[in-house]
Amino acid sequence: MMTHTETRSAVLSIGRVYCDLIFTGLDHLPVLGRELFASGMEIAAGGGAFIAAAHMAHAGRKVALAARIGMDSLSAGVEAQLRESGVDLRFVEHAGDAGPQITVAAVVGQDRAFLTRRAGPALPATLDAALDWEEACHLHIAEYATLHEIPDLVSRAKEKGLTVSLDPSWDATLIYDRGLLRACEGVDLFLPNLEEAEAITGSADPQVAIRKLSLAFPLVVLKGGAEGAWVMSSGRMLHAPAETVPVIDTTGAGDAFNAGFINAWLNGASEEMCLRAGIRFGSLAVQAAGGARLLTTAE
């Protein structure tokens, strides 16, 4: 558990911001040469950094986003949602090459497939100022791809006295990188899902995978969706079951889980309570389309 003073209790969340086009009400995924019609669609601000930040802000945590955003019409629409979220945007850089960044999500039951376009580099010109933010106590890195582009990010955060969490996030070009764990040195809290943990460790057994990852990180949380979640620290493993809730869209559920767990962890809660908080946030997120769509009972 970590405790922090009231003067340094804010979170800095870094990563790419996307315009998510989320198609729901599908019985199956599209196939080549055929048109498929969805009964529902949502256009939402996305990206793990923003989704996690929005849920933390909703829980009452002061949180700022460090990111780049484009100047095109889609980016402008996304920015309107960013402003409504309660997230501090002082470290958001506007740049022509930063957009549009788009993710198309096709949701089938409790699973989904993504098609994404990235734009420009991940490094915001505001990073130095963000790391100097006197209210921040913690840095959340929403995807390993961001750390891959900014390899000294963890060490720079540590020099400023920040604790660091990292969600590796699925990226087929990076998740199998044998140097991934070494590149993540210094991360305090590692937050993969089952598929990512298997790619990194080679084990599909969650208990084996989390034990392997615990050799590299002080605190590991493994997100299993309908299987619940595991946490391991100092050789002690805990599991908490998932909640049974109606599922509309699982996009961003893992990032919402991250927000709940990190918020409770920074409050000094027990690991069991942190797990429960993460599962509660994730469960609420899947009940609405769009990862940052918030329900008033998230606290």
Rank of each mutant, 00 (worst) to 15 (best):
P218R: 11
S283D: 06
A226W: 01
A256E: 13
A269Y: 04
E243A: 02
A209W: 12
P241E: 02
F261G: 05
H239N: 01
Q207R: 01
D249N: 05
F190R: 14
V247G: 09
A269H: 04
E272T: 14
G225T: 06
S233Q: 07
C184K: 06
A288I: 07
A292F: 08
L222C: 05
K212W: 10
L266S: 13
C184L: 02
N258L: 14
I248N: 05
I248T: 04
V286T: 10
D205I: 03
A204R: 15
L219C: 15
L284G: 12
G282E: 08
V187Y: 02
V286S: 08
F257S: 04
A197G: 14
G291H: 11
A288P: 00
R236D: 01
F257E: 05
L266M: 15
A209Q: 12
P218A: 12
G290F: 05
M237H: 01
N263A: 09
S233M: 04
V221T: 07
A269F: 03
A269V: 09
A256M: 13
A256H: 10
G225Y: 04
E243C: 05
F217H: 06
N193A: 09
V221M: 13
N193D: 06
S203Q: 13
A264D: 02
Q287F: 00
G235W: 06
N258H: 14
M237R: 12
I248K: 00
A285Y: 03
L266F: 11
W265Y: 07
E196K: 08
E243D: 01
G252W: 07
T251D: 08
D205F: 03
V247M: 12
A288H: 07
S214N: 10
A289C: 02
V220Y: 15
A264T: 06
K223V: 09
I248C: 05
I279W: 02
G254Y: 08
K212A: 15
L194M: 07
